[in-house]
Write a protein that binds this DNA or RNA. Structure first.
Lengths: 347, 347
DNA sequence: CACTAGATAGAAAGCGCTTGCTGTCACGCT
DNA sequence: AGCGTGACAGCAAGCGCTTTCTATCTAGTG
């Protein structure tokens, strides 16, 4: 029924071993023989059986990329960059590797299960993107998994994730970025700033918030806990949180959002409340996703070099670039000041 | 070194066959035996060897999702919905399937190579999303591949892709959507409309443009070819194309963009040219991606039920939903009239 | 109580490929 | 002429699992 190596061998009048060697190209085969084999492969439309060869060779060409939310460009951009370096068909790298992205939806269980699945497939490498969940049990579970994967020869790289002892990491300086942003706002004269955080248990959320608070503290501004609202990393969350912040303190002059998407929701809520940006309230985002510049006014935000970080993580995963010193590289964000922030008007 | 089925069997004092059956759960195993096996699995931290079991069982639990651009939410949203139905860990479906998304970057070769890779892995199903390239050679090549995949038992489903004889398809009515949009604009009184198309060789581009032209024709408006500019499906393309359209005809009163992202670029160009939206020029997009509503003014566009279509495609791919009658389901878009379109002012 | 059906468990034959090791030539050297 | 030496090609032993067929045992039946 299906064509096998043996069929090709028979047709080319050689042994299966020879066919295998032609296909893998790591053993001398006479040119004429090679051609005969290739011809047979072509005529029979032969396609290598991946599982069989993975089994026999005890390696696979699968590379996994874990993302929290595939519909979010934040992850899409990184995944795209990683995949591009991984090779995949036509990628910068030559090898024919199956780079696959797995969508965990932010769920710890799914993350673990995908890791197991990848382990089961004997993946060549795994790249985990985005913030981690700070649940101790989950953290050790992931740590163990990663160690096991590494032991089995799978290269593990973190991209935009806090470093762990088990893997090489390209980390974003979320804390520094958050600080930059709030310093900017304070410099503009703001004193009553609302903060819309992401999910409380995520490292990214905590780090950005810590940066914000550090800036407040440095400026001697009291950090009223009521000025922080936790939510999700999506637009609706930004919308609702903004209304809530406004309810708690209508004299707010600035809103710092967990990311650009949330900031957009915040802008919508402000507009719907009859407030002008930035005349009445300034808004700042984080990430500098492509659409941020199209918001009106354009969003002040912190640019994270998503594509560069992803590319680097991809190269490291493929062993084409050395791991950073100490296994950790920290990437800083760059403050992008645009129209959505301005000096508060005296009210 | 690595733990195998045999090790587990030895530890549990049963045969490998029994362990396999416990793990696959499709054969009666006494409860006490099962527990003993599960205990051994746990103690040894055993992980099934995917390739080996795929080889022996001649099936795999890999499902491929092909997308043109993983960084584009258009695809991200569909991929997410598909993946959710496919199962994957924690998905609505129970099975532990490895749903993987492959990023073709819109390149025909990559598309083909990914298909081969998936075929090589003996994927259980493949879902192709987004428009196809209209190159006859490539079309037949893909057609052949799909037929082969189907012959080998891989379920093939198209989502948001024009139907082909080889597969079940959930298609978007791009033509109808395009027509709706332009009819709306004409109804508003516009007579000089610019059109920013996507890449010329893509079906999506052609269909949307055809709808636009049909609407023009129906209204008896002459279709000046100079009013159409081709580009890519990205923001910059929209920006540049708009400047070009304006150069060709500064009296334009409306711009119809290939999709929302392009529309955003167009808006930026118009603003930079000192034109107001929609007072001076109306702008319309397509797809209704999440950020469209946050544009200022909010974008008039055609909503495509991306998530619903993806979910359906996913279910069909998993055999959990019947294929539509005739193998083709056409999904209509819904016109979303928002602030970016209005009546042209007399100039 | 002998007999059969039903429920489990095991033996063993592959699944299709890779690869270490063993030939077999044809040369070129002494 | 004799023989070491590359350069290829083939043999055969698995890789770790699934699954068919067979063996065993228990319990139900007349």
């Amino acid at each position: 029924m299906t064509v096998t190596l043996a069929d090709v061998a028979a047709r080319a009048q050689v042994s299966p071993a020879t066919v295998s060697r032609v296909l893998n190209g790591n053993y001398p085969v006479a040119a004429t023989t090679r051609e005969r084999v290739l011809k047979a492969v072509d005529e029979l439309d032969y396609v290598l059986n991946g599982p069989a060869s993975a089994l026999a060779a005890a390696t696979s060409d699968l590379v996994g990329i874990l993302v929290n939310d595939i519909a979010d460009p934040f992850f899409g951009i990184m995944a795209s960059a990683i995949q591009n370096e991984i090779g995949g068909p036509g990628g910068r790298a030559g090898g024919e590797r199956l780079a696959v992205v797995c969508n965990t939806g932010g769920s710890p269980e799914r993350e673990l299960t995908y890791l197991t699945l990848l382990q089961r497939q004997r993946a060549a490498a795994v790249v985990l993107t985005g913030g981690a969940i700070e649940d101790p049990a989950h953290l050790t579970a992931v740590g163990n998994k990663l160690r096991r994967l590494a032991d089995a020869g799978t290269r593990v790289v973190l991209c935009g994730r806090p470093p762990t002892p088990e893997a090489i990491a390209i980390t974003f300086d979320n804390r520094g970025g958050g600080q930059l942003l709030t310093e900017h706002l304070i410099g503009l004269g703001h004193r009553r700033l609302g903060y819309i955080a992401g999910p409380e248990e995520r490292t990214t959320t905590r780090h950005r918030l810590e940066g914000h608070r550090a800036a407040l503290a440095a400026a001697g501004i009291e950090d009223d806990p009521g000025r922080t609202v936790y939510g999700r990393y999506d637009r609706l969350s930004g919308y609702e949180a903004t209304l809530e912040l406004l309810r708690r303190d209508p004299t707010l002059t600035a809103v710092v959002a967990a990311n650009d998407t949330v900031a957009l929701g915040s802008c919508a809520a402000l507009r719907d409340s009859g407030l002008r940006i930035p005349d009445d309230v300034s808004v700042a985002g984080f990430d500098d996703l492509p659409f941020s510049i199209d918001a009106v006014p354009a969003l002040t935000t912190v640019r994270l070099p998503l594509a560069e970080a992803g590319a680097r993580a991809g190269r490291i995963a493929m062993g084409r670039e050395e791991a950073p010193h100490g296994g950790i590289a920290t990437v800083r964000g760059e403050l992008m000041v645009r129209g959505s922030t301005g000096s508060p008007r005296a009210k």
